[in-house]
């Protein structure tokens, strides 16, 4: 089972650590956006990727559960921005940009920066199965303790 960047928005403290780290790792431009309500938004590497469908140059490619972006093939047409349901692709003047799961870091055996740096553990780089298992456990415990949910 592959690893993915997974988000637990209830943990996000809107500290922007992921944005600052991502920008540093990607030449000053962050591929993740922290929204004021406390949710980091980044490319979800969809299985049915709408962006892929509109890209006509092969700049977007699906491989090993990832949506990979090849900047050198991008024309900057902005069609993928208009196709992405989550607004997770940006336009840097003349070319698109999006999360590459820190491919340069993974080549060195390192985790994506956002998952590693998140002080609150809101972003993790893990298997979906482990992640859901843990989340269900926590939800069950919280229910058993009789705590209200406070999702604001």
């Amino acid at each position: 089972m592959g690893y993915e960047v997974l988000v637990r928005p209830e943990r996000c403290i809107s500290c922007y650590a992921c944005e600052v780290a991502c920008a540093r790792e990607h030449g000053g431009l962050s591929n993740v956006w922290v929204l004021p309500q406390g949710v980091p938004i980044l490319c979800r590497h969809c299985q049915n990727a709408a962006c892929l469908e509109v890209c006509y140059t092969g700049a977007l490619e699906q491989r090993d559960g990832e949506v990979i972006f090849h900047r050198e093939k991008c024309t900057g047409c902005e069609l993928c921005l208009l196709a992405c349901p989550f607004g997770a692709i940006g336009l840097d003047g003349k070319r698109a940009y999006k999360c590459d799961l820190c491919s340069h870091r993974r080549q060195e055996g390192l985790m994506p920066a956002c998952a590693l740096t998140c002080p609150a553990g809101a972003i993790s780089y893990s298997c979906v199965a482990d992640f859901s298992h843990r989340k269900r456990g926590i939800a069950g415990l919280s229910w058993a303790m009789g705590y209200e949910r406070r999702g604001k």
């Binding site: 650590a17 944005e19 740096t117």
Partner: peptide, 13 residues
């Protein structure tokens, strides 16, 4: 930290 850093730490350099 288990590796974590806040935005200030990330910008320290």
């Amino acid at each position: 930290t288990k590796g974590a850093l806040c935005p200030k730490g990330n910008a320290a350099l």
